[in-house]
Design a protein around this nucleic acid. Structure first.
Length: 816
RNA sequence: GCCCGGGUGGUGAAAUCGGCAGACACAAAGGACUUAAAAUCCUUUGCCGCGAAAGUGGCGUGUGGGUUCAAGUCCCACCCCGGGCACCA
C-alpha cells in the first residue's frame, strides 16, 4: 500500500463525531474490580473559552486515563461545569439574556470544543453546578450543617471587594486585594454573614496530612499547614484594676516575668470601657484605621490607658495599652508584652519607653551576661522566683499547669485558620435556604421545599446590595413555622461550595433523592488522582477536605480525605503572565487545531515541558510535532500491505533485531514514564527516537517485524494522539477503540543490547571508547581498556595507580 | 525576614541511583530532488583553539570553595529568578 499523506482535517472530525455519538465508549464499569478515579480540578467555566492552559491540563489527564484503560483498569474520568459569579454572567443578564440559557449555550460550545480536542471524558456523568438540582444538594448540605452548628450567622468584620460588590472569604484575599481584582484593595465592613465552621476540623486537617504525605506535593501541605497556623501556648488571665479579667494568649509563658505591659487590640471588647474621654476618640480613630492598613509599611502605634492589670504569677501590676498591631482575630485579642523576648513587643516598647526586662538567658552563655535583646530563642529562665533555672520548655509546661490548677488560665492551642464566610451578595450562586421570620427568627427552609431557586426577572446593578433583594417574588416568603409573612435570605453561597463536593456527585449525577448514593461512591473513593493548578492550595483543596469530613460525620462516606494523590500542573504563561480569561491574555486552541489538528496540539503541549513545570507560550515548534505525526502516519500506511500482525515475533535479520530492540526499549521507557513521573516530554521523545530508528531500518524489515513495529508504535502513541492512532488502528484492519486495547508489555530479552560502547577515562577525562559485549566481566573490561591503543599511548611514562571499572558503564584509569 | 521551587547551547529541554553533559525537538546553515516552490530526505550545529583533511587540544551546567577515581547531580557559602508566608503573640 502506498503511503498516505497525513490529513488531520479528514481524520479528526470523523472520529470526534463518532465518539460524541457513542459516548458509552468512555463509560467505566460501575462494578469494576479495581477502578481508578481521575478528576481534573473543577471544570471550565462556561463563561470563558477553552484556552491553552486548559488544553495542557486536559491533555495530561486524558493521556493518563487512556493509559489506565489500556492497562485494563476501569477509569472514571468525568467532566463538569462550574458557573462563576463573574462579570461576564452579570453582563449577560444585563443584556437581557436569561443567565441559564446563556450558560447552557456556552456549555454546548465548550463541549463541542472539548469534543473536537478528543478528550475522553465520561459525558454521561457530567455535573453542572449551576443547575437547580445541584443547588438543591448544596442547600441540603447547608441545612445539615445548620442543624449541627457547623453553619451559623454572625455579625462581624468581613472582607468586601468594591469591584465585585460582595463579601470575600479570607482565603480569597490576596495581598490585601481581591483575588479576582488584583488592584482593588479589600475593605473591611461590619456585616451579618453566614459562616461554615471549618475550624471545627482544624486539628484533623493537620492530623490527616499523614494520609496525604507522599501523594500530595509537600509544598501544598506546607501551605495548608501555614494557613492553619497551629500554635501551642497558654492562656492567662490578668486582673484589671476594675476587677475584670483580661485573658491573653502567649506561646512563651516562660517569659511572663518579663511582661511590662498588657496590650489590647483596638477592637477588643474591653477597650471601649478602658478608654474614656479623649481616649475614646483616639480609640475610634484607631479602629477605623484598622480597616485600611497598607500592609507594606505598617507602623506600630498605640496609647496607654489609665488602667493596670495584675500579672497572676508575680502579682505585679502593669499598665494596659491599646496597640494597632494586636489582632482581634487571633488568640484572645490581647497580649502581654515581653519586650526583652519578642521582636514586635521590643519595637513597640522601645518606641513608647516601656521598661524592658530580660528573664531568659542563652543556655550556652554565662547567666550573668544579659543576652542581646530581643532574645527570642528558648533558654534558661532567671529573675522569675521559683521558675528560675528551668529551661524554657520546662517552665512553659509547668507554668501552664499552675495556671490551670489555680484557675487563672490553661494550656491552649490556637489556630490561625478562621471559619469560612460563605455569604455572597451576588446573583449567581446557591441561595442560602433560610427564611427570616419576625417572630420565629431564622427558620430553615424544609427539605421538601428545596431547591430554593434563583429568580429570573432580576436586574444586576453592581451596587452594594444583593440583586435578589429587588425581586419581591423571591424575597417575600411565608414562615415555614408559623406561616406569617417573612423575608427570604438573599445572600447566595460562595461558589467554592459547588467545587467542594462535585467529584462525589460525578459518581451518581442523576440522583434525585440524595446528593449521591453512598454505596455507589464507595468503590471510587478516595479519588486516585486529582489534577489541578497550585492556585487552589488553600482554597478549594482545603474546603474540599472540610466537606469530606462533614460528609463522613453525616455517615455519607467512609473516607476522611477526598484526594489520595494530588498533582499540581504548571501554569501556561503568556508574556510572563498566567494565562487566564480574567486577564484576557488567553491563546485559543482553535487556530492551531484548524491548522495542525488536535493531536498535534496535544502532542505539542505535552512535549514542550514536563507537566509540573510552568511554561511560557511559544508555538514556534509546533510544526515539529506535525512532522512527527506525519512521519508515523506515513510509516504505518506504507507498511500495511506487507505487515504481518500474527504469529510469534522473531528477528530474522539485523534490521529486525535493531527494530525490535528499540521497540521494546521504548515500551519500557513510556511505561515507566506513565507509572512513575508523567514526564510525557521524554515519552514522546522516545517515540520520536523509535520512529527515526524504524525509518533507518525500514527497508530490510521482515513482514512480521514490520507488523510488530506498526502495531506497537500505534499503541504507544494512542494516549497522546487519539485521533491519528484510532484511524491507523482501523486501517490496520482492527476493530474497536484503540484505547481499549491492552497496553503492550516490554520484553526485556528483546530490549537488551548485546553490545555496548564503554567510555574510557584517564583521571576522569574521556580519552577513548570501545565496543564490548554486554555483561563483560570487570577484569576483562580493565584488560581491554589498558590494552586500548590510544590509552596505551596516553599512559606511556605514567604509573597506573588504580582502575575503576563500572561494568557496562565505564572504565576510569587513575594514573600519575 | 522565614519556608519551598528553580538557574544547563541561539530556543524548548534531556541526563530517573554520583558514571560519556546537551537525548529529542525548534531555529539556523549547507546539500539532494524540482523549471521553480511546497513537501520530503541527507549533512552540520555548546564555546574557543590547532589542522588542508582524517583528526586533535582546552574550556563548559548561576558564582566561589569542598568531598570523590569521577559532580549538572552530594556538602558549605554566596548571587539571581519564581512562588508561598509575613505584626499570628
Amino acid at each position: 500500500m502506498p503511503e498516505k499523506p497525513y490529513d488531520h482535517q479528514a481524520i479528526e472530525p470523523k472520529w470526534s463525531d463518532r465518539w460524541a455519538a457513542d459516548s458509552h465508549l468512555y463509560k467505566a464499569a460501575d462494578d469494576g474490580a479495581r477502578p481508578r478515579y481521575y478528576v481534573l480540578e473543577m471544570l471550565p467555566y462556561p463563561s470563558g473559552r477553552l484556552h491553552m492552559g486548559h488544553v495542557r491540563n486536559y491533555s495530561i489527564g486524558d493521556a493518563l486515563a487512556r493509559y489506565q484503560w489500556m492497562r485494563g483498569y476501569d477509569v472514571l474520568h468525568p467532566m463538569g461545569w462550574d458557573a462563576f459569579g463573574l462579570p461576564a454572567e452579570n453582563a449577560a443578564i444585563k443584556r437581557g439574556q436569561h443567565p441559564r440559557t446563556w450558560t447552557v449555550d456556552n456549555i454546548a460550545h465548550m463541549k463541542k470544543q472539548l469534543n473536537r480536542m478528543g478528550f475522553a471524558y465520561d459525558w454521561d456523568r457530567e455535573v453542572s453546578t449551576c443547575e437547580p438540582e445541584y443547588y438543591r444538594w448544596n442547600q441540603w448540605f447547608f441545612l445539615r450543617m445548620l442543624e449541627r452548628g457547623l453553619a451559623y450567622r454572625k455579625k462581624s468584620l468581613v472582607n468586601w471587594c468594591p469591584e465585585c460588590a460582595t463579601v470575600l472569604a479570607n482565603e480569597q484575599v490576596v495581598d490585601g486585594c481581591c483575588w479576582r481584582h488584583e488592584t482593588t484593595p479589600v475593605e473591611q465592613r461590619e456585616l451579618e454573614q453566614w459562616f461554615l465552621r471549618t475550624t471545627a476540623y482544624a486539628q484533623e486537617y493537620l492530623d490527616d496530612m499523614n494520609l496525604l504525605q507522599g501523594g500530595w506535593p509537600e509544598r501544598v501541605l506546607t501551605m495548608q499547614r501555614n494557613w492553619i497556623g497551629r500554635s501551642e501556648g497558654t492562656e492567662v488571665d490578668f486582673t484589671l484594676d476594675s476587677g475584670e479579667k483580661v485573658r491573653v494568649f502567649t506561646t512563651r509563658v516562660d517569659t511572663i516575668y518579663g511582661a511590662t505591659c498588657v496590650i489590647l487590640a483596638p477592637e477588643h471588647p474591653l477597650a471601649k470601657q478602658l478608654c474614656e474621654g479623649d481616649l475614646a476618640a483616639q480609640l475610634k480613630a484607631m479602629v477605623d484605621d484598622q480597616g485600611r492598613k497598607d500592609p507594606e509599611n505598617l507602623q506600630k502605634e498605640g496609647f496607654a490607658t489609665p488602667h493596670t492589670a495584675k500579672n497572676p504569677y508575680n502579682g505585679e501590676s502593669v499598665p494596659v495599652w491599646i496597640g494597632n498591631f494586636v489582632l482581634m482575630g487571633y488568640g484572645t485579642g490581647a497580649i502581654m508584652a515581653v519586650p526583652a523576648h519578642d521582636e514586635r513587643d521590643f519595637e513597640f516598647c522601645q518606641k513608647y519607653g516601656i521598661p524592658i526586662r530580660p528573664v531568659i538567658h542563652d543556655a550556652k552563655a554565662d547567666p550573668l551576661t544579659p543576652p542581646a535583646l530581643p532574645f527570642t530563642e528558648y533558654g534558661i529562665v532567671y529573675n522569675s522566683d521559683e521558675w528560675s533555672g528551668m529551661t524554657s520548655e520546662e517552665a512553659r509546661r509547668r507554668m501552664s499547669e499552675k495556671a490551670e490548677r489555680e484557675g487563672f488560665g490553661k494550656a491552649a492551642i490556637t489556630y490561625r485558620l478562621k471559619d469560612w464566610g460563605v455569604s455572597r451578595q451576588r446573583y449567581w450562586g446557591t441561595p442560602i435556604p433560610v427564611i427570616h421570620c419576625p417572630s420565629c427568627g431564622v427558620v430553615p427552609v424544609p427539605d421538601d421545599q428545596l431547591p430554593v431557586v434563583l429568580p429570573l426577572n432580576v436586574t444586576i446593578t453592581g451596587k452594594g446590595r444583593s440583586p435578589l433583594e429587588s425581586v419581591p417574588e423571591f424575597v417575600n416568603a411565608e414562615c415555614p413555622k408559623c406561616g406569617s409573612a417573612a423575608r427570604r435570605e438573599t445572600d447566595t453561597m460562595d461558589t467554592f461550595v459547588d467545587s467542594s463536593w462535585y467529584f462525589f456527585r460525578y459518581v451518581d449525577p442523576c440522583n434525585s433523592t440524595r446528593p449521591f448514593d453512598s454505596a455507589k461512591v464507595k468503590p471510587w473513593f478516595p479519588v486516585d488522582q486529582y489534577i489541578g493548578g497550585v492556585t487552589h492550595a488553600i482554597l478549594h483543596l482545603l474546603y474540599s477536605r472540610f466537606w469530606c469530613k462533614v460528609m463522613r460525620d453525616l455517615g455519607m462516606v467512609d473516607v476522611s480525605e477526598p484526594f489520595k494523590n494530588l498533582f499540581t500542573q504548571g501554569m501556561v504563561q503568556l508574556n510572563g503572565q498566567t494565562m487566564s480569561k480574567s486577564k484576557g491574555n488567553i491563546v485559543d486552541p482553535d487556530d492551531m487545531v484548524e491548522k495542525f489538528g488536535a493531536d498535534t496540539c496535544r502532542l505539542f503541549v505535552l512535549f514542550a515541558a514536563p507537566p509540573e513545570k510552568d511554561m511560557d507560550w511559544d508555538e514556534s515548534s509546533v510544526e515539529g510535532q506535525y512532522r512527527f505525526l506525519s512521519r508515523v502516519y506515513r510509516f504505518v500506511t506504507r507498511n500495511l500491505d506487507r505487515a504481518d500482525f500474527a504469529g510469534p515475533v522473531q528477528a530474522s535479520n539485523d534490521a529486525d533485531q535493531r527494530a525490535l530492540r528499540k521497540i521494546h526499549q521504548t515500551i519500557a521507557k513510556v511505561t515507566s514514564d506513565f507509572d512513575n513521573r508523567w514526564h510525557f516530554n521524554t515519552s514522546i521523545a522516545a517515540l520520536m527516537e523509535l520512529t527515526n530508528e524504524l525509518y533507518a531500518c525500514e527497508a530490510e524489515l521482515s513482514p512480521r517485524a514490520a507488523g510488530e513495529a506498526v502495531e506497537k508504535l500505534v499503541l504507544l502513541l494512542a494516549p497522546f494522539a487519539p485521533f491519528a492512532t484510532q484511524e491507523l488502528w482501523e486501517s490496520m484492519g482492527r476493530a474497536g477503540a484503540v484505547f481499549r486495547q491492552p497496553w503492550p508489555a516490554a520484553d526485556a530479552g528483546l530490549a537488551r543490547e548485546n553490545e555496548i560502547e564503554v567510555p574510557v577515562q584517564v583521571n576522569g577525562k574521556l580519552r577513548s571508547r570501545f565496543v564490548v559485549p554486554l555483561g563483560l566481566s570487570k577484569d576483562e573490561l580493565e584488560r581491554r581498556a589498558l590494552g586500548d591503543d590510544r590509552i596505551r599511548g596516553l599512559l606511556d611514562g605514567k604509573q597506573v595507580v588504580k582502575v575503576i571499572v563500572v561494568p557496562d558503564k565505564l572504565v576510569n584509569i587513575v594514573a600519575k
